[in-house]
């Protein structure tokens, strides 16, 4: 039973990461700006992160979808979410008004349109799912299971 719940968690997280990644690849310039407005990274790192992060998300999605290296993929997923939560919290604390750009978009918004609470809570939910897979990486319908058989 737990293995089947794991499968559902795995596929669910895969869909979230695939959605997040795909939404950010059509406009590289917008993806870079979404990173820039956090005012955390120096300008030289803005583009590598803006360009690379969506593909990291897609790789995690792919690995979770097929269930290959589930524990590692879940660890990467969890680390990414921790970084995202910390970044949003930092922006919030510094009084900057942005859209987190979590699922595409991003950039500055009016102060009344920030949604930091919702964004952080949502990411915490995904973090819990990642935690489940880190603790119980054995799931049904996975390449891991098929290779171990």
């Amino acid at each position: 039973m737990a293995a089947w719940i794991g499968t559902a968690v795995r596929i669910g997280l895969a869909i979230v990461w695939a959605w997040a990644g795909l939404a950010k690849i059509s406009d590289p310039q917008a993806a870079a700006q979404a990173v820039r407005v956090y005012r955390i990274l120096p300008e030289t790192l803005v583009k590598p992160f803006g360009y690379g992060l969506p593909f990291l998300e897609l790789a995690v999605a792919l690995l979770l979808l097929v269930g290959l290296g589930t524990r590692i993929a879940a660890i990467v997923s969890g680390l990414l979410l921790l970084v995202y939560i910390a970044s949003i919290a930092s922006v919030w604390a510094r009084g900057i008004s942005i859209d987190c750009g979590c699922f595409g978009g991003g950039g500055a918004v009016a102060a009344s349109q920030t949604q930091y609470w919702q964004e952080i809570l949502r990411d915490c939910g995904f973090l819990l799912l990642s935690g489940w897979l880190i603790l119980r990486p054995k799931t049904r319908l996975s390449l891991d299971g098929w290779l171990a058989a």
């Binding site: 690849i25 590289p28 993806a31 583009k47 590598p48 803006g50 360009y51 690379g52 969506p54 593909f55 990291l56 897609l58 790789a59 995690v60 792919l62 690995l63 290959l68 290296g69 590692i72 993929a73 990467v76």
Partner: peptide, 18 residues
């Protein structure tokens, strides 16, 4: 394999978007 998939995706992504 897992680490290679992740690293390759990031490198390819940066190059393609550049």
């Amino acid at each position: 394999t897992t680490l290679v998939v992740i690293a390759a995706a990031v490198v390819i992504g940066i190059v393609v978007q550049n």
